[in-house]
Design a protein around this nucleic acid. Structure first.
Length: 422
DNA sequence: GGGCATGATTTTTT
DNA sequence: AAAAAATCATGCCC
């Protein structure tokens, strides 16, 4: 130790690292006397440089030799001093890196998707997140099993990769730390230094991790767009479902607005969701209205069907119909409900080019029930452009009667008498 | 592959 | 908020 401090003082002038002691009368003498040590340090440095060119055994031997070199403590001190200065500058450069916003975003998304985060709750979190984010009304969990499976696959790959990276990272870190510790015998390496190195390594690895996260996110997005975007996987409803819906539609042509309960029942019957029922009715109404002619055949078909149905029902049940419970009996057996075609006839009247109704009117008696319906607008008061039920609507009761209350969906017959007509 | 049918979504209207 | 209207995207038939 004493030896070292002496050396340090003596080596101060090496490489001009300390203040030049020009005015010092002793300096010349010092320099002269230190000529020898300077040479020695140069030797050591050269030997260190040369180590890399040698074989492992040789290097080990040389390293050992160097460690035992009498000038080694001096070199160590010099290196310490240099370090002292450079470390300061490094410390200045080194700033606290704030949590990368991008990686935070990725993390959040992976967490929301259930890819990262808690083990088993992940699945439910994913489903919830998907439902919330997708906003898609079709939560047919049947279809989601495939999605879940794929998501689980992604999750598995993600975790496997993550683990691999983490393992590699810690392995590499250990390796570097060992190396540095080993080297700290020949050159000064403070614990801080090692810490810094570890930090650098971790940052490098985390950038790889970010790539992994990014590509995982991408995979999830693709998966989701493929599986959860309802438009992509649009399937036509099965025949039975379409029939049930059409049956309801044409038997409620006067007011094709199923109540919430009716929708639920239809949904159950067709094994689709309520919003799908709503969609269907929305589409049907608009498309029917746009081109009644095109739907004539279909309308006749279903009208006949319900008529026959009703006839048999009334025959069997001896006209004991209870219109008060529409939903329970919404299976399409609610009589000839085609009495008041207020909705389409009126809207058709109010400006659409097609006018199926009037032309058919004269032959109403010989037409199919549904065709006859088309002419019903003649019997209605010509006012209300939007006859469908509105809570705040204060229209004449004659118009809104068929739909005034949700339960009156099937009570179409009630507005028969209310039309002043001819 | 074109064209229509159809379910879903988005925008506008009420 | 709910329905209408417009639009999109896919399914399906020829």
């Amino acid at each position: 130790m004493d030896d070292q401090t002496r050396m340090l003082g003596g080596l101060g002038g090496l490489g001009g690292l300390s203040q030049p002691d020009v005015g010092d009368p002793d300096s010349v003498r010092k320099q002269q006397s230190l000529g020898q040590p300077q040479q020695g340090i140069g030797d050591i440095l050269q030997q260190i440089m040369a180590i890399t060119d040698e074989s492992l055994d040789e290097a080990q031997a040389r390293k050992h030799a160097l460690n035992c070199h009498r000038m080694k403590p001096a070199l160590f001190s010099v290196l310490c001093e240099i370090k002292e200065k450079t470390v300061l500058s490094i410390r200045g450069v080194q700033e606290e890196d704030p949590p990368d916003p991008q990686i935070m975003r990725l993390d959040n998304m992976l967490l929301a998707e259930g890819v990262s985060g808690p083990e088993k709750g992940g699945g439910r979190a994913a489903a919830a997140a998907a439902a919330a984010a997708g906003g898609s009304p079709n939560d047919g969990s049947i279809e989601h099993s495939d999605y879940r499976a794929k998501l689980a696959q992604i999750r598995q790959i993600y975790h496997a990769e993550l683990e691999k990276y983490e393992q590699a990272c810690s392995e590499f870190t250990n390796h570097v730390m060992n190396l540095l510790r080993e080297q700290s015998r020949t050159r000064p390496i403070s614990p801080k230094e090692i810490e810094r190195m570890v930090g650098i390594i971790h940052r490098k690895f985390s950038s790889i991790q970010m790539q992994l996260k990014q590509s995982t996110c991408e995979a999830v997005m693709i998966l989701r767009s493929r599986f959860l975007d309802a438009r992509r996987k649009r399937r036509n409803f099965n025949k039975q479902a379409t029939e049930v819906l059409n049956e309801y539609f044409y038997s409620h042509l006067s007011n094709p607005y199923p109540s919430e309960e009716a929708k639920e029942e239809l949904a159950k019957k067709c094994s689709i969701t309520v919003s799908q029922v709503s969609n269907w009715f929305g589409n049907k109404r608009i498309r029917y209205k746009k081109n009644i002619g095109k739907f004539q055949e279909e309308a006749n078909l279903y009208a006949v069907r319900t008529a026959v149905d009703a006839a048999s029902v009334s025959a069997q049940a001896s006209q004991a119909n209870s219109p008060a419970t529409p939903n329970s009996g919404s299976s399409g057996s609610h009589g000839l409900s085609h009495t008041g075609d207020s909705y389409f006839s009126l809207t058709a009247l109010s400006g659409e080019p097609f006018s199926v109704g009037p032309s058919l009117q004269p032959q109403a008696d010989t037409q199919h029930p549904a065709t006859r319906l088309m002419a019903a607008f003649e019997e209605l008061p010509g006012g209300a452009p939007y006859p469908q039920p509105r809570p705040d609507d204060t229209n004449p009761p004659s118009i809104r009667s068929p739909a005034g209350a949700p339960s009156s969906v099937h009570s179409d017959a009630s507005n028969r008498g209310s039309s002043p007509a001819h």
